[in-house]
Write a protein that binds this DNA or RNA. Structure first.
Length: 476
DNA sequence: CTATGGCACGGATT
DNA sequence: AATCCGTGCCATAG
């Protein structure tokens, strides 16, 4: 805020503006690349080992978050804490893995690289520090299908920890998105998926039996044997098979759920590092929200002291040669601070407006626009646009969503629509116009045609296709 | 005739 | 200025 480095009144040169703008629209991955580039080509800029809080400039240990800025302040109207965090502890997990072992990170194609990181970021805070290494180890073994064939026992042996610990960690991983990932087999993956579905909806208990023991029999279409063994009717088994093939994914690694299908799908969950992490204080949903804006290099870039000294000591002639780089570096640091400051101010507003969305779910999203926010923060709309662009955010439930999700005006209606379709009709599905009516009664003002569009976005079949089956559980 | 998807238009948003 | 989004109209399938 009142860091002497950057003052609002300072003359804003065009260079300054241009750089701030381009920095603002970068996400952390891009930012890291950019900073690396500048560090390489500009001798005046230096990365220091000492890490400081990007907000209050307090000294921090590696991996530590600022104890002052991350505490609830009495000035906070909403019970949310928004702060900048210099944490880079994800990166550690990768480094510690690649060293020592003989496989090369470079050999991974980007596609395979993304999944392990994506998983790791979801679970990293659910595990105590000493278990993260094991988790990372497991995750890195994941193959294209999403499996890790190494058994818990051998992992336990490798790390010299009790088997139960490995089992616990593995379970945590498997519950991350994509659900079932890092299981040993399709059966195991599917039974986790089933377990999680069962928490949300009613599912006959014998399904888990089938998944665990009779998948191969089922794939031979031998319904009779399964029915006999489990003392069920053949139609029950058929229903189960239908349900399984519809809702469970034997290969969690082949995450087909990205963007697909005809109409452009809603911005789906992305595989990327979150730029912002939202969680609850102490993981307790009743406590304050913690919004952690990850700012790589936020607190540990500075003008090289050697360079400074060189400038002071050298002749006027030489001084002029050194000056451009010095100024560039200086400018860069300021711009970076301004970027972070903007991000923080924006996130404060966003969390204020979208607490209900974060805490209670998609239904309670507030339809705000970037323009509204721009007005309130007294910045140009394009500033907000850039700040939102390309960024991703991790919600307390571990889902990583694009930051633009907060500005999705139709998300609330769409979740309501999903609920209606799931809850109501089974035997007699509701037509689009019926759904439109119901939604209108609930206060959503929209046309029948729009219902159809939303359905398409959510990948829900039209009414005539939903008919007959009494088991349907659609996910996003 | 009813339910849906395609195309395209106009207003809002970025 | 470019893009996105809700909707109306019309064709098509059942």
């Amino acid at each position: 805020m009142y860091q002497r480095q950057y003052l609002r009144t300072e003359p804003q040169t065009t260079a300054h503006l241009a750089q701030t703008m381009s920095l603002l629209k970068m996400n952390n991955d891009e930012l890291v690349d950019e900073v690396e580039k500048i560090l390489n080509e500009n001798p005046a800029l230096e990365r220091v080992d000492e890490i400081r809080c990007p907000q209050c400039n307090r000294k921090l240990n590696p991996g530590q978050i600022c104890p002052k800025c991350s505490q609830p302040k009495s000035t906070d109207v909403e019970d949310a804490i928004v702060f900048l965090s210099p944490r880079t502890d994800f990166q550690f997990s990768n480094e510690s893995l690649s060293s020592g072992d003989d496989y090369q990170m470079d050999e991974f194609t980007p596609d395979v690289m993304e999944l392990p990181e994506y998983i790791l970021r979801q679970i990293v805070y659910d595990l105590p520090e000493n278990e993260r290494e094991i988790a990372a180890y497991i995750i890195m073994q994941v193959n294209e299908d999403g499996f890790v064939t190494e058994t818990n026992a051998s992992i336990a042996q490798y790390f010299h920890v009790p088997l139960s610990k490995v089992e616990k960690i593995r379970k945590t991983i498997m519950r991350a998105d994509p659900i079932g990932v890092c299981a040993v087999s399709p059966e195991a993956a599917m039974s986790i998926q089933l377990e999680m579905l069962a928490e949300a909806t009613d599912i006959p208990s014998f399904y888990s039996n089938i998944v665990e023991k009779y998948l191969s029999t089922l794939s031979k279409k031998d319904y009779k044997k399964v029915a006999q063994d489990l003392d069920l009717s053949e139609s029950d088994v058929r229903k189960a098979e239908h349900f399984i093939s519809e809702n469970l994914n034997p290969y969690p690694g082949r995450a087909s759920w990205g963007s697909r299908k005809n109409d452009r799908v809603v911005q789906e969950n992305v595989y990327s590092n979150p730029d912002i992490i939202v969680k609850y204080l102490n993981n307790d949903p009743n406590q304050s929200l913690i919004v952690e804006i990850i700012v790589p290099y936020g607190g540990n870039l500075q003008i090289s002291s050697i360079y400074k000294k060189a400038m002071q000591q050298s002749e006027d002639q030489k001084k002029d040669d050194l000056k451009p780089d010095y100024e560039k570096a200086n400018l860069f640091i300021k711009c970076l601070q301004q970027r972070n400051n903007t991000m923080r101010r924006m996130l404060e507003k966003i969390t204020k407006y979208q607490v209900d969305f974060i805490r209670k779910g998609a239904k309670y999203i507030n339809p705000i626009t970037r323009a509204d926010l721009a007005e309130e923060l007294e910045v140009h709309e394009s500033t907000i646009s850039r700040a939102v662009a390309n960024k991703s955010l991790q919600l307390p439930d571990g889902k990583i969503v694009p930051l633009s999700r907060f500005f999705d005006r139709s998300l609330g209606v769409r979740t309501e629509l999903k609920e209606i379709i799931n809850k109501e009709s089974k035997k007699k599905p509701l037509s689009d116009s019926k759904i439109a009516e119901i939604l209108n009664q609930k206060g959503y003002d929209l046309a029948r045609r729009t219902v159809a569009k939303y359905r398409a976005m959510e990948n829900i079949d039209p009414a005539y296709m939903r008919k007959k089956h009494d088991n349907e559980t659609k996910q996003s």
